[in-house]
């Protein structure tokens, strides 16, 4: 039994948590990485609900829970939880109990989306070729979240710098994963973008 990302694994291939992944080593610099195997959970609840309080993250912002889960406020009353492959974010269980005052929904969307990470000092210059949002630090600093069109695909974009290096997570509809991955690579070719393999415990 094997699960596959919509993005064709390049270079040497291995298995992680039942997913086929690329094991190409990181080279540093501007790079693009397929993290689709990560667990992704969509939470819908009222903005004033108990769930919202537990998630502790307003629309447009992301934070990390103690267990490492990335919580992103992706819409009004909507959150995306990202945790390591094969895990289930503890937060999802905390809020899953239900709220009698407002409908709360927790949906596993791990298989519904691609998740890729674009990182490197030039990542902004790559992204601003295909995304109309202002990527300056003043408008979208580290921890900023927005949903918009990237290369004509709707994506959740999370600015999630990696040890001081500018980095973006892109999450969108799985079927367009290969297309978007290629589009980012194409936009990044001017800046010598590279591909790196799957990284564990990265989120």
């Amino acid at each position: 039994m094997v699960a596959r990302s919509p993005i064709r694994a390049r270079g040497p291939v291995g298995r992680e948590h039942g997913w086929e992944v690329s094991t190409t080593a990181r080279k540093g610099g501007l790079e693009l990485c397929d993290l689709t195997p990560y667990s992704k959970v969509l939470v819908r609840a009222g903005v004033l609900s108990k769930a919202a309080e537990v998630l502790g993250c307003a629309l447009g912002l992301a934070r990390r829970a103690p267990d490492g889960t990335l919580v992103a406020g992706t819409g009004p009353g909507e959150w995306l939880l990202v945790s390591g492959a094969g895990t289930w974010p503890a937060l999802a269980d905390e809020i899953g109990g239900g709220d009698p005052t407002a409908l709360t929904t927790v949906v596993d969307v791990t298989h519904g989306g691609f998740l890729i990470r674009l990182s490197g000092a030039d990542s902004r210059r790559v992204l601003e070729k295909i995304c109309a949002i202002d990527l300056s630090d003043g408008v979208t600093p580290d921890g900023a979240v927005f949903r918009s069109s990237v290369a004509r695909i709707v994506c959740d974009v999370i600015r999630d710098d990696d040890g001081g290096v500018r980095s973006y997570l892109l999450h969108g509809d799985r079927s367009a994963g290969q297309y978007l991955f290629d589009a980012v690579l194409d936009a990044g070719s001017e800046f010598s973008i590279g591909i790196s393999g799957y990284r564990e415990k990265e989120a």
């Binding site: 064709r8 290369a151 695909i153 079927s175 367009a176």
Partner: peptide
Amino acid sequence: GRILEPVRYSPMQPWHDSHGAKPIVAGQW
């Protein structure tokens, strides 16, 4: 500019490709 025409694929597309499927364009798919 760059040609940005989204293409969507089913998870089974690699199999179709390698088994002689004649592709047909159905919207973005």
